[in-house]
Design a protein around this nucleic acid. Structure first.
Lengths: 180, 180
DNA sequence: ATGACACTACCTATCAATAGGTAGATAAAC
DNA sequence: GTTTATCTACCTATTGATAGGTAGTGTCAT
């Protein structure tokens, strides 16, 4: 892996653990094994780095979800897949969702980072809305509402699990979306 | 209002806007009209301040909710009151829930602040579980699950509304808890 | 094939600003 | 005359960021 990729990966990990204001160029440089000036070479400002990390995360996340209109898989299974992606983040990686973290801190972010964070949620809602719309008993407005509810619940469930130091809190919280 | 009270109030406001790592003693001092050394007089360390702010917030929040076993009010109305408290925070005050913010950043917090944040969620879940348990069609396990789901959804809904700059996203997201 | 040049990705060294925190003086209140 | 709440002044560490140097790689006209 190139130093550039290592920087992005390390930054993602640090933001997901301690937030945007919880890491520094020097910490990333130390973790990667370069000097902080080299991080600035790739990303002139902290906002540049944050925006690239957020965009890469969004892309990776959506790729893992697959196409929302995939006929080979039931919508219910797709919702379970969505939850599974977040479960992996909080249970296995023991970290927040990157954009859940950035979303909480949104008022403290440079514009370009806030913009990418917003896009993450817009695309999540778009994906979930399409999936819910495929369900038999759900109308257009209902799908949109359920999509908002699902994103919110999953993000909140991650906060809950980490704060309570109890991964089962995540399971309890998301059970509603999975079974509805 | 005493300077001490002003410091606590200002700290709460700043944490809810930009997070624990998003404010400094000097900013609080400037906002209150004292010197940063005077803030240190009341709160020797940042952790001391954070812990007091979190504890005060929890107390205030629970007081606004009232007793969970209040027979004069239906459980459904109590859930609506819970949502209303959070709606006020995000729609009127345009800020995160203090402990939603701290919960996201929990890995970056001093122990004493993380502890108070955890207590906030434990008490929220306790309150909601008691309320849900009063509902006719809900068992003990169901009440606990619904309580976790409600806290998570509400916290996530606040993140969503702020990031999307759309207060209606909060309404869409919490609609599920209100009508279930 | 070779020398000149430019580009990439790092480096050293440094900057001004800000961070959390401390020591000790002061002035009013009890 | 002790306590309370503030102040001035300062400390060390860290922050995001910049300037300028360097080693290795590739390109290209001669």
């Amino acid at each position: 892996m190139s130093k550039l990729e290592e920087i992005i990966e390390t930054a993602e990990s640090m933001i997901r653990e301690r937030g945007y204001n919880g890491f520094s160029f020097r910490e990333i440089a130390d973790a990667v094994g370069v000097k902080s000036a080299s991080v600035h070479y790739h990303f002139p400002t902290k906002g540049d780095l944050g925006a690239v990390v957020a965009r890469a995360y969004t892309e990776k996340f959506l790729l893992a979800l697959g196409a929302p209109e995939a006929a080979a898989i039931t919508p219910k299974k797709q919702i379970e897949r969505y939850i599974e992606a977040c479960r992996y983040a909080v249970v296995k990686q023991r970290k927040m969702c990157l954009c859940g973290m950035l979303g909480a801190e949104v008022a403290a972010l440079p514009d370009e980072v806030a913009r990418e964070t917003k896009i993450f949620f817009e695309k999540n809602i778009e994906w979930l809305t399409k999936v819910y719309a495929r369900m038999a008993n759900v109308g257009a407005a209902g799908a949109l509402g359920r999509a908002h509810g699902a994103v919110a619940t999953v993000e909140g469930a991650m906060i809950l699990a980490r704060t309570l130091k109890d991964v089962d809190a995540f399971e309890k919280a998301v059970k509603q979306i999975a079974t509805s």
